[in-house]
Design a protein around this nucleic acid. Structure first.
Lengths: 258, 258
DNA sequence: CGGTCGCTTGATAATCGTCAATTGATGTGG
DNA sequence: CCACATCAATTGACGATTATCAAGCGACCG
C-alpha cells in the first residue's frame, strides 16, 4: 500500500487528485472543503487490506479508481462479502455507530483511494451542517441497498441472483460516460459467489449457461449483455438451472419466451 | 389505526406518552425537544400498515410498545422481511436517501408508535446539530445490523440461522429490566421464516428439534432458553437438521457435545 | 358451527453445495 | 528461461439440505 501525502503547498498549486471523483450531488462549496481536508491518497494492489474490521474509525475513504470488497467476519470464522465498491463511492460508512470499522475493506484490483481524517471532517461539520446532511443521506442510501441485498439473499433462486447482479451492473455501466452494455468484473467467481450466497461453481455454471443461451458473452471477467430482455426473464424467476441441461428443455423455453 | 393527537396544552400539563421510550443514549435536552415535536401517538392492531413502501418520507416513527416488521417489496412481487422492530427503536431510517420509505412497516401485534413530523425534526436540527449526529449514528447502526443479516442469510445453515436469531433475542431480553431467559416472539413462523430466508415448515421443524434436545422450551410464541451453551454449539455449525431424525443420531451427537 | 389461520409433521423432490479432475494463466525461484 | 507451484475457472457426478406438497389439529372469529 503506497501512500502519497498531500502537503499543503502541493494542495494549493496542483489540481487535487480527488477532484472529479467526489459524488456529483455534493454541493460545490463542500467539494472544495472536503478536498482540502484530504490528507493522502493511497495506492493498493489486489488483495491489500485498507482497513481491518474492529479498528478505530479514523478515516473516511473515497474510492477514486479500482474496486473493493467489504467483508463481514463472524465471530466463529464465517465470512461474507456484504458489498462491492466501485469508483466514486465512500467506504466505511457503517463505522459511525460504534466508531470502529465493521468490515474488512480489501482491494479487488489495483486501486487508489483518498483518505479523509475524521477529525477534519468533524471540523467542516462544525461550520457547515450540509456535509452532515449528506453523510446521513449516503449512509441511508447504503442501508437501502443492504435491505435490497437482503431480499436478494433471502428470496431469490440462483438464476435470479445472477440476473439481479448483472442487471445492476448493466444499469451502472449505462449511467457511465459512454453508456456501454459491456463491463469488467473486478472480482473472482468465488468473491461473486460469496456476495450472492452461492458457491463459486454455481456462479461459473450460471454464467456458462447464460452464455450458451446467447444472453451474455463472457470472456474471463469481461461481460457483455446481449439480451437484456432475457436477463429480465431470468430475474422474474421463470428459468432454473438445469441439471447438466437435461435434454435441453431450457433452450426451448428460452426461445418460447423470446 | 387509532390516532391520538397531542395538543399543545396537553403537552405542557401531562407526562408525555413518548417519555421514557426514547433511546437511552439521547442527550436529555434533545429528549425534551424531540418530545415536544411529537404530533400524535398511533395505536395499531396486528396486520395494520403504518407505512407503505414508496410513500413520501413525512414522519419518523418511534415504536413505544409492541412489534413491527419491515418488509421489502421487489418489483416482481418478491417480498422479504428485512428487519423486526422492538420497543424503543426508530423506524423508517432508510428513507433519508430517496425521501421515500423503502419498506412497508406493519404491526405484528397491537402496538403504539409516536409520530415525529420531519418538518419539526428539521427545525430542531437547525438550532442543535447534536440530533443530526444521533440520527447518523442510528442509521449507521442499522446499516451495521443489515450487514450482519447479510452474513446470516448468505453463509449460515438453517440451524445456524435459528440459533443466531434466538441468541440475539436472548441477549436483547437480558438487556431488559429483569434479565430474563424467556421472551415472547411477536411474529408468526412464516414471518420468522421470511426474515431468516427459510420456509415456515423448516422454522417449525427446527424449533421442535431444539425442544426435543432440551435446548429450548417452546410454547406457542413463548420461548425459554434452557441451554445457551448448546445454542452456541448450533451457532458454530456443528449440528444439522436430521431428515426426520434418521435413527436418532442427532440425539447422540447432542449428548457427546454436552 | 363452519371456516380460516397458525402450526406441526411426514413424504417427496429439486436446488445447489461438495468433491474431484482438468485446463490455462500467473508468478517465482533455481 | 524454464520447471514448478499456485490460483482462477470450468465441468461432471453425487448427495445433502431444504423447499414444496399434503394432511391433520387446535384456536379463534364471525
Amino acid at each position: 500500500m503506497k501512500r502519497h501525502s498531500i502537503a499543503a503547498p502541493f494542495r494549493s498549486r496542483h489540481p487535487h487528485p480527488c477532484d472529479g471523483h467526489l459524488p456529483s450531488d455534493l454541493e460545490p462549496i463542500l467539494r472544495q472543503r472536503i478536498t482540502e481536508t484530504a490528507e493522502a491518497t493511497l495506492e493498493l494492489n489486489r488483495g491489500e487490506i485498507l482497513v481491518h474490521s474492529g479498528e478505530p474509525f479514523k478515516y473516511l475513504y473515497l474510492l477514486l479508481s479500482g474496486g473493493f470488497k467489504a467483508e463481514e467476519i463472524g465471530e466463529d470464522g464465517l465470512s461474507q462479502i456484504v458489498s462491492f465498491h466501485y469508483a466514486g463511492e465512500f467506504m466505511g460508512l457503517s463505522a459511525f455507530a460504534e466508531q470502529r470499522y465493521m468490515v474488512d475493506l480489501i482491494a479487488l484490483v489495483p486501486s487508489s483511494v483518498c483518505e479523509f481524517p475524521m477529525a477534519g471532517v468533524q471540523t467542516i461539520i462544525q461550520d457547515d451542517r450540509a456535509l452532515l446532511d449528506r453523510l446521513l443521506i449516503y449512509v441511508s442510501d447504503r442501508l437501502m441497498r443492504a435491505e435490497q441485498v437482503q431480499l436478494m439473499l433471502g428470496s431469490m433462486s440462483s438464476t435470479q441472483k445472477i440476473a439481479h447482479f448483472l442487471v445492476d451492473r448493466l444499469e451502472a455501466s449505462r449511467r457511465g460516460a459512454q453508456a456501454e452494455s459491456r463491463f469488467e468484473l473486478p472480482m473472482t467467481r468465488k468473491e461473486l459467489g460469496s456476495y450472492l450466497g452461492l458457491s463459486m461453481e454455481t456462479v461459473s455454471r450460471l454464467l456458462s449457461h447464460l452464455q450458451e443461451q446467447g444472453v451474455v458473452r463472457v470472456d474471463k471477467r469481461q461481460i457483455e449483455i446481449l439480451r437484456e430482455d432475457q436477463l429480465r426473464v431470468w430475474l422474474d424467476g421463470v428459468v432454473s438451472l438445469p441439471a447438466s441441461s437435461r435434454g435441453k428443455p431450457a433452450a426451448k423455453q428460452a426461445l418460447k419466451l423470446a
